[in-house]
């Protein structure tokens, strides 16, 4: 599942480097992810997966290299500028609006994309499209029952679901999910996978994930990141049998399962 010749990749990284102080964390990543592809990034802890997401989404500036979104250079743009261009991400460590209700969390997340921007002359309750969209997402992530509960009071699994809801609510075409199932038990994970499949249908999805069951069930292609370098990018079956990957990462994890 590679991009058709001529069509711009959804996300493209060209020679991306990132250092924190003297330590180089991302060491020359080249990667192209096609429109509509479901791409998983795996790799040991500390490999730089979250850092890669931070570079793509504008949270950190790259040290060198370029990031392209739909063929346009977005290197150096601010997170909100990148988000407005149709890329949205979730966080490994839950990052929600704690003192707002579930519904308000989601409604806030749809406002910009629906064009309400900084409006202070329109009543929120009169914004039919925003309210409908927020309710629809709330239903989609299974939190309708918790509509008026403050986000900070939700259970961990519910907060993780809300984290995904906030990410997808704006209708971005490119979704980055950083370990969406981290800390969940088996049934919660299964539920989350169904949710992710449902809410990202037809979109470009890039996901950092540790659970190999999830990765192999969901991804079209997998990239393996080790010490800030992509050592392989391929279809799940090929990754499974790749010797370098076995050695660097999968072997140990497979034994654990």
């Amino acid at each position: 599942m590679t991009a058709a010749p001529g069509a711009a990749a959804s996300i493209e990284l060209r020679g991306v480097y990132k250092s924190f102080g003297k330590t180089q964390i991302i060491r020359g990543v080249n990667l192209a992810i096609a429109k509509g592809e479901r791409h998983a990034i795996i790799g040991p802890n500390g490999a730089g997966k979250s850092t890669l997401f931070n570079l793509i989404s504008g949270r950190f500036p790259v040290s060198s290299g370029n990031v392209l979104l739909n063929g346009a250079d977005i290197t150096g743009l601010k997170p909100y500028q990148i988000n407005r261009r149709g890329l949205s991400r979730s966080f490994q460590i839950t990052n929600i609006f704690h003192r707002l209700s579930v519904f308000e969390n989601l409604r806030c997340s749809v406002l910009w994309s629906l064009g309400y921007k900084y409006s202070f002359w329109k009543a929120l309750n009169g914004l039919a499209d925003a309210n409908e969209r927020a309710a629809e997402v709330m239903e989609g992530i299974g939190l309708s029952r918790r509509r008026d509960t403050l986000a900070g009071l939700l259970s961990y699994a519910e907060q993780r679901a809300l984290e995904i809801g906030i990410t997808i609510a704006g209708g971005a075409e490119v979704i980055l999910l950083d370990e969406p199932t981290a800390g969940m038990n088996r049934s919660e994970t299964a539920h989350a996978v169904e949710l992710i499949k449902k809410v990202t249908a037809g979109k470009t999805l890039v996901m950092v994930e540790h659970d190999m069951g999830v990765v192999f069930g969901l991804a079209d292609r997998i990239s393996v990141l080790v010490y800030g370098e992509v050592i392989a990018t391929d279809a799940p079956a090929a990754i499974r049998s790749n010797a370098a990957v076995q050695e660097a990462y999968l072997g140990t994890t497979a034994n654990n399962h």
Partner: peptide
């Protein structure tokens, strides 16, 4: 009334978590 407008509500979001607000399209400075 201002507390019940997009700006008013997003101000609450910026209060709670300015970083995340930037990832849903809002320039927190503005």
């Amino acid at each position: 009334a201002l507390t019940r407008t997009p700006l008013g509500r997003v101000a609450n979001a910026v209060r709670d978590n300015p970083e995340r607000a930037e990832f849903i399209g809002y320039n927190t400075h503005i």
